[in-house]
Computed example of a mutant assay.
Amino acid sequence: MIQTETLLQVTDNSGAKKVKCIKILGGFRRKFAKIGDLVIASIRVVKQHKKKKVKVKEGEVVHALIVRTKSKFSRQNSTQLQYQKNCVVLMTTKNKPLATRVLGPVPKILRHSKFMKVAALSAGFI
Rank of each mutant, 00 (worst) to 15 (best):
Asn86Gln: 13
Ser71Lys: 13
Leu103Lys: 14
Cys87Phe: 15
Ala99Ser: 15
Lys70His: 10
Val102Pro: 12
His63Val: 05
Lys96Trp: 00
Pro105Cys: 00
Val88Ala: 09
Pro97Val: 07
Gln84Asp: 15
Ile66Asp: 12
Gly104Tyr: 10
Tyr83Phe: 14
Val67Tyr: 01
Val67Thr: 14
Lys72Gln: 12
Met91Cys: 02
Lys72Leu: 13
Arg101Cys: 00
Leu65Gly: 12
Met91Gly: 08
Met91Phe: 01
Val88Cys: 03
Phe73His: 03
Lys70Trp: 05
Ala64Lys: 11
Met91Ala: 00
Thr79Asn: 13
Leu90Asn: 08
Gln84Cys: 06
Thr92Phe: 01
His63Lys: 15
Asn77Pro: 02
Arg68Ala: 08
Thr93Arg: 15
Ser71Gln: 07
Leu90Glu: 13
Gln82Thr: 07
Tyr83His: 13
Val102Asn: 05
Leu81Thr: 06
Val67His: 01
Pro97Ser: 09
Leu65Asp: 09
Gln76Pro: 02
Pro97Ala: 05
Asn95Lys: 14
Ala64Trp: 08
Lys85Asn: 15
Leu65Asn: 10
Arg75Cys: 04
Leu90Phe: 00
Tyr83Ala: 14
Val89Asn: 02
Thr79His: 12
Ser78Phe: 12
Ile66Met: 04
Gln84Gly: 07
Gln82Asp: 01
Thr93Asp: 15
Arg101Asp: 13
Arg68Leu: 06
Met91Thr: 08
Thr92His: 04
Arg75Gly: 12
Leu98His: 09
Gln76Cys: 10
Lys96Thr: 04
Thr92Met: 04
Asn77Phe: 13
Phe73Asp: 13
Asn77Gly: 11
Lys70Gly: 06
Val102Trp: 13
Asn77Met: 11
Thr100Leu: 09
Met91His: 11
